[in-house]
């Protein structure tokens, strides 16, 4: 009897159920972001490769290509630009693309290893937990993109100073869209698979069939069907959004497409993690027997 009374006393110390305060939502977000950041810092190799990857493209690929590919005057550029300069926004977007896929991989890993179950026992709604995961991944990705832009500055790719500010919302929006795609993939992937699968079927096609490495007007001259493919690729619009924003300009079509893709991927990802029909139920309790 006294045990029951004491138990009730204990539970009475909690805030009234049903009214998790707004602060609780933010604390949850804070905790998830913090964990993501700590994990990123602990994985030195991941941090390094996230930086080295775009630098290889910039320093080696772009330097070699500058003699072959001249980029004529097209918005947002006001003069002729060197190929290095052209390729930097696409590489910043590539950082976000890799980060988005990396966090999808870590979602699958978490699910296999069981730590996702801790996340999902939170009393906060599941869509919010996924949003927190998404935001945490995006913050880590945007940080990487800025570090890359900083190094590119030393490589004498120097957009106007205001561009470093105006590019922030573009990086966020593009990062959210690519992160949401990663979440959606993680809900569809049944088990921990080789990263090469995502590499071959998502990252490479999205990256190469986009305006990251070559301007679309040039693609159109070469191959019309590829041009259509690039236009349909949300990554192209993410790249263009970042490119214009880096020069203090706004590209409404790119922004609209990225936003639409974000809502679509995000909505499907939430459905994928829905307790009534999602990936968890299909996979079973995680027990083999």
């Amino acid at each position: 009897m006294s045990a029951t009374a004491e138990c009730q006393q204990l539970t009475a110390m909690r805030p009234a159920p049903g009214t998790l305060p707004a602060m609780a939502w933010l604390r949850c977000l804070g905790g998830i972001v913090r964990r993501e950041a700590l994990r990123f810092l602990h994985q030195r190799g991941r941090f390094l490769s996230a930086l080295v990857r775009p630098l290889i493209w910039l320093v080696i690929f772009a330097s070699g290509f500058r003699f072959i590919l001249g980029v004529s005057i097209a918005p947002p550029y006001e003069t002729y630009v060197l190929y290095e300069e052209y390729v930097v926004p696409g590489l910043a977007a590539m950082v976000l693309l890799f980060q988005g896929m990396q966090s999808s991989l870590s979602m699958v890993y978490d699910r296999e290893m069981g730590s996702m179950r801790v996340l999902l026992t939170s009393p906060l709604p599941r869509w919010w937990l996924l949003t927190c995961k998404l935001l945490a991944g995006v913050l880590v990705g945007v940080l990487q993109a800025y570090v890359f832009l900083g190094i590119a500055w030393f490589w004498e790719v120097r957009p106007p100073p205001i561009g470093y500010l105006t590019v922030l919302p573009a990086l966020m929006l593009a990062g959210l869209m690519l992160g949401a795609l990663g979440l959606l993939l993680s809900a569809r992937i049944r088990q921990l698979e080789n990263f090469a699968v995502i590499m071959n079927f998502v990252i490479f096609p999205m990256f190469f069939a986009s305006s990251a490495l070559y301007p679309l007007w040039r693609v159109k001259e070469g191959s019309l069907w590829l041009w259509y493919l690039c236009q349909a690729n949300p990554f192209t619009h993410a790249v263009e959004l970042v490119r214009f924003a880096l020069y203090g300009k706004f590209e409404p079509v790119a922004a609209a497409v990225v936003l639409f893709a974000l809502l679509l991927f995000g909505g499907l990802a939430v459905l994928g993690y829905d307790p009534a029909r999602g990936v968890m139920a299909r996979r079973g309790a995680g027990a083999p027997g």
């Binding site: 939502w25 604390r27 949850c28 804070g30 905790g31 913090r34 906060l124």
Partner: peptide, 14 residues
């Protein structure tokens, strides 16, 4: 950090 993460998921103040 592991404990604080669990607490944050429940919305507990740091």
């Amino acid at each position: 950090e592991n404990l604080l993460y669990g607490a944050a998921l429940h919305g507990m103040a740091r």
